[in-house]
Design a protein around this nucleic acid. Structure first.
Length: 562
RNA sequence: GCGCCUGUAGCUCAGCGGAUAGAGCAUCUGCCUUCUAAGCAGAGGGCCGCAGGUUCGAUCCCUGCCAGGCGCGCCA
């Protein structure tokens, strides 16, 4: 049984009132029957009411009447007596502005307090199983800054989906098979030999990063030179799996530090060993979407709108990267997930068409698969960009960033921008322990509230059962603004989850914190008349719950004091 | 050449069909005997890249152009 949010309850009430107004006007022969849905929006300007509807404008064409005229007729046929609606007005080009009695805000405050930590959670997603795959860094080295961005976004997206009532899981795909892993093995092999004093170059297509040097030294410490006696093929394989294991451990540690914990680690190698690849190719073949040309096996991705067909098996018998990835996605569906979301870097955007085609060829709806492109990050310090070059072996890793700015700032900053827009990350600003830094601004609001509760306890001010608190003593604009913002929270979560826009949450929290700080300077909680103090305690409790909930979703801490 | 992302305040970015285009930073002016001034109030600052089109209405949608970034393998 879906539990509507306070906002939904109110909107439903308003909509049915307006619908009744339309119906009444229609019966009286004043208006044609209403065909459009009645939409409500929250106006930008407060002077335009708590909600506004554009239904008159939207119906103007159909009703062949000027929008303002329609709106006026409707408004004069609506009965607002005894409802939460105080008054209706027609404004601008034909908006119907709805002004509510402030008592609806009490419901929002009460709801937040009743639901506590669960406030913001809804069952919008109806338990739909969603798999979000992100980061999936190749196990060929430490993780870099873009992956930190993807990590923050993916992790938060899963939190938001779960809050919105989906059953979402985070998955890390381990690319522990294929050419690059072999190259990694060869690179480590060279470093190993170097560590033993041999003059061997790192292979040209190998990995030059310095982390392999220390890994090789460690390997020498563990194994001495005895690996030299293995035959080349076996040694490289050993090197490869050793390096993969070490790199993965390091990645997992970094992620842990960053507050990202994956529900599932999925190994490409294991999947391939299960025969999934052959099975998938057979399935594609059986469904008639493959053909042979130039000695290679092709997938007819153009049948689903891709610009060209793609090779699955090369003419030398090797599979492409694409083929096992199809198998992997099939495997995700077979594990019961109904919706798949992949976060990928911008260099993979060309991949969208073919993978979407593959999903459809396997019989799954195009809408069940989605690739989110996480755009590049440029680190900026003192107005200059910090150069990163993977090829030169010098790059700024996720750990470097965590050392530099800390987890809270790193996550919050990445979550201030839309995933698909390239961003500059100002490391100087992120380090500031002050009001210029948005993350501190939000956390400070939370800490201030905690501080008030500590003080309240000291002076023996205790909140009685919620029912006996009279919220009607709230009246300052800053109090009502706060309550209204709190009422929006569940919908912020829903919208952010549905549109895959975690950055809405940071924006929301900055707004909410702003409103709180304004309230804080205008109104005192302790030392007022008791009923006022109690009502304000209830209000700021609701705010505290909401900020904590929001920060939790972002994976950012909500300190009790600062 | 083709594809994707991006052009909005001095800087970094929100907004993406509605009524006077917003925030943070930076700049300037005020505000601490009272729950944390890591705060608040206020001011200045904008041909929303350019040109057409669709619409009652466009920063938002469509087309073309200009600029920046990133891709375009039987690599992964």
């Amino acid at each position: 049984m879906p539990m509507p949010t306070v906002l939904e309850e109110i909107q439903t009430e308003i909509k049915s009132m307006l619908a009744a107004g339309f119906a009444k006007a229609h019966e009286a022969g004043l208006l044609p029957a209403l065909e459009n849905d009645i939409q409500l929006e929250v106006p930008r300007e407060k002077e335009h009411g708590d909600f506004a509807s554009n239904v008159a404008m939207a119906s103007a064409k159909q009703m062949k009447m000027p929008p303002r005229r329609i709106a006026e007729i409707v408004v004069s046929n609506v009965d607002t007596a005894g409802s939460v609606v105080n008054r209706l007005e027609v404004a601008g080009p034909g908006f119907i502005n709805v002004f509510l009695d402030q008592k609806w805000l009490y419901r929002a405050i009460r709801r937040a307090l009743e639901e506590g930590e669960r406030y913001g959670c809804t069952d919008t997603g109806r338990g739909k199983k969603v798999l979000v795959e992100f980061v999936s860094a190749n196990p060929t080295g430490p993780m870099v800054v873009v992956q930190a961005r993807a990590g923050a976004i993916g992790d938060t997206l899963v939190n938001l989906l779960n809050m919105a009532g989906y059953c979402a899981k985070r998955e890390f795909y381990i690319n522990d098979s294929g050419n690059q892993v072999r190259n990694l093995g060869r690179s480590l092999d060279a470093r190993y030999k170097q560590a033993l004093g041999m003059d061997v170059p790192v292979p040209e297509d190998g990995y030059p990063g310095e982390y392999l040097i220390s890994m090789a030294q460690e390997l020498v410490k563990e194994e001495g030179d005895r690996l030299l006696s293995m035959d080349d093929e076996a040694r490289i394989e050993f090197m490869a799996s050793y390096a993969v294991r070490k790199n993965l451990e390091a990645q997992r540690r970094s992620l842990e530090r960053y507050g990202v914990r994956f529900d599932i680690w999925s190994s490409q190698k294991a999947l391939e060993e299960s025969g999934a690849l052959e099975h998938t190719l057979a399935l594609l073949k059986q469904r008639g979407y493959t053909y042979e040309k130039d000695g290679a096996l092709w997938f007819r991705s153009t049948a689903f709108g891709d610009d060209k067909d793609r090779v699955l098996v090369k003419n030398n018998g090797d599979v492409t990267y694409f083929a096992p990835d199809i198998a992997y996605h099939l495997n995700k569906y077979q594990r019961g997930f109904e919706e798949l979301i992949d976060l990928l870097g911008p260099d993979h955007h060309g991949y969208i068409g073919r993978m979407s085609a593959a999903v459809q060829a396997l019989g799954y709806p195009a809408s069940s698969f989605e690739i989110l492109i996480v755009q590049l990050v440029r680190l900026v310090s003192r107005g200059e960009s910090v150069r990163m070059s993977k090829r030169g072996g010098t790059f700024i890793t996720m750990d470097d960033l965590l050392d530099e700015v800390g987890r809270d700032a790193a996550r919050f900053f990445f979550l201030m921008r839309a995933p698909d827009s390239p961003m500059d990350f100002d490391t100087d600003l992120a380090k500031v322990q002050g009001n210029e830094n948005p993350v501190f601004y939000v956390q400070y609001a939370h800490a201030r509230i905690c501080s008030i509760f500590r003080q309240a306890e000291e002076v023996g001010l205790k909140m009685p059962p919620l029912e006996s608190v009279d919220l009607s003593v709230l009246g300052d604009a800053s109090e009502l603004d706060l309550a209204r913002e709190v009422a929006y929270w569940p919908h912020e979560v829903i919208d952010a989850a549905r549109n895959r826009e975690p950055h809405r949450i940071t924006k929301y929290l900055m707004d909410l914190a702003q409103l709180f700080h304004t309230f804080y300077t205008r109104c005192r909680v302790i030392g007022e008349r008791e009923d006022v103090s109690l009502a304000r305690l209830a209000l700021i409790k609701a705010v505290q719950i909401t900020i904590a909930s929001g920060l939790r979703a972002l994976g950012v801490s909500a300190p009790d004091r600062m």
